[in-house]
Nucleic acid binder design. Structure first.
Lengths: 237, 237
DNA sequence: CGCTATGTTGATCCATATCAATAAGTGTGG
DNA sequence: CCACACTTATTGATATGGATCAACATAGCG
């Protein structure tokens, strides 16, 4: 195990996060001094659901899959990408993790002891406010995902997912899927076979897929089918 | 519209909520003085999704359905029962409501201006901490619901729902469903017809339903089928 | 290069939705 | 208090979205 103390070179990346950007220097530095930074190879399980949550995780580079298991079945719940935190809620509550986490690729991750987070929370009102904002945002994200799952068919979910990704990619008509189709299927709540067929089904609405490359050939048509809604699809609303 | 100022007789009920129980009297009273209390008849829409969130709602008596709509479809997301708050996250963020709310029965509801909540949040560290705890709890509840939806079939969801309700009812082998089957179906992500058949399907595992009355005749058998899991079904975990 | 995991396609099965008809409640006004 | 209207619940028949099983293609990767 590494000794605590984050390399100074990582400070700015963490500091840039909304969660940490407004707090007092003194408190931020205290948090960082108690933090560990580790590099993990691909496909390492960082967290197993049910275990006590000792650290707030901050992903500095790479990608992490948050997934859950029940009765031999597995589903992908979300993907964490730099720079963001994950399992904030478990850390705050001192409750067991509800989701497992594994690296999708080589990743650099900062681990901040949960007790430090709670201590600084009590000492720094600005930080406390940031945590609230962040938690509220996380909550609303999950609610949106649940609406997506309950109100839409898998074809509609895929169509809207593609529109969201396109938007993230700057609105270009051509962009890359950011992870394996296998995992995308799980994230969208379907099987890989069904995803394959769904992509073909969207050809009728102007979507062309070759490998990881997606091309939207008829934006209007796709949107007419997908009916994106800001209360489900807008990440900031 | 009523004038602000909550009747003193309602104070204790609100005060009892974890969100408010620890804060300073001074701040609590300030919040209550700015609050409105209203009695609503059955089937009134209190909140429409997409509207700006001006009030934190506290349900003092009755029951409220939180639901969402997209493209002509509707789904029940959760039920709020006394005494608890709802739409805390939207209030905090000053963001539009993600869910609509309607009374399921005659209900008494307190409305606390969101700006007051945010103001007291800044002035009272204990209250701030309570809000964080509450938000983290809400977040984890939705994550559990999402796991339930993605990892289980509708029959399994119903079986586990019944076990949770039984637990809430004190563990008795006999208890009442707390709302219409129609809404229960929507909450569980299925049609009323399918729910009807699911109840019949659970007869094989020792479940008898007559109207709203549920009897668990073979606890062991039902649990063997349902495989309840604390990371999905335990409301406090 | 092959080996292994991922992706695609086809055939079939199953869970769940939809449509339709009836029954059972529930509330309302005469 | 009853009769009517209306909503909800059940049951049956059928349709369909999506899963599963199987075969094959493809692409990374050692």
């Amino acid at each position: 195990m590494m000794r605590p103390g984050m390399p100074d070179s990582d400070y700015p990346d963490v500091r840039r996060l909304a969660l940490f950007s407004e707090m007092a220097d003194e408190h931020f530095n205290a948090l960082m001094r108690g933090a560990y930074v580790q590099n993990f190879p691909q496909h390492i399980e960082l967290i197993t659901e049910g275990e006590p949550s000792d650290f707030l995780h901050v992903i500095l580079s790479g990608a992490v899959d948050l997934f859950s298991v029940w009765n031999g079945r597995e589903t992908s719940m979300a993907t964490a990408r730099p720079v963001s935190t994950f399992i904030l809620a478990a850390s705050i509550r001192g409750a067991p993790y509800l989701m497992s986490a594994r690296t999708l690729e080589k990743s650099r991750i900062a681990l901040i002891p949960s007790q430090d987070v709670r201590a600084i929370f009590g000492a720094d009102n600005v930080f406390a406010r940031s945590i609230v904002t962040e938690l509220a945002h996380c909550y609303r994200s999950v609610v949106k995902t649940q609406k997506d799952l309950k109100l839409r068919t898998s074809l509609e979910r895929l169509a809207n997912y593609l529109l969201r990704q396109q938007s993230r990619a700057g609105g270009e008509t051509e962009f890359d899927l950011e992870f394996e189709k296998r995992r995308l299927a799980s994230y969208l709540g379907m099987t890989p076979e069904n995803l394959s067929r769904a992509f073909k089904g969207l050809q009728a609405y102007g979507v062309v897929v070759q490998g990881n490359r997606v091309t939207i050939t008829d934006q209007q048509d796709l949107e007419r089918f997908a009916k994106p809604n800001r209360l489900i699809d807008d990440p900031h609303s």
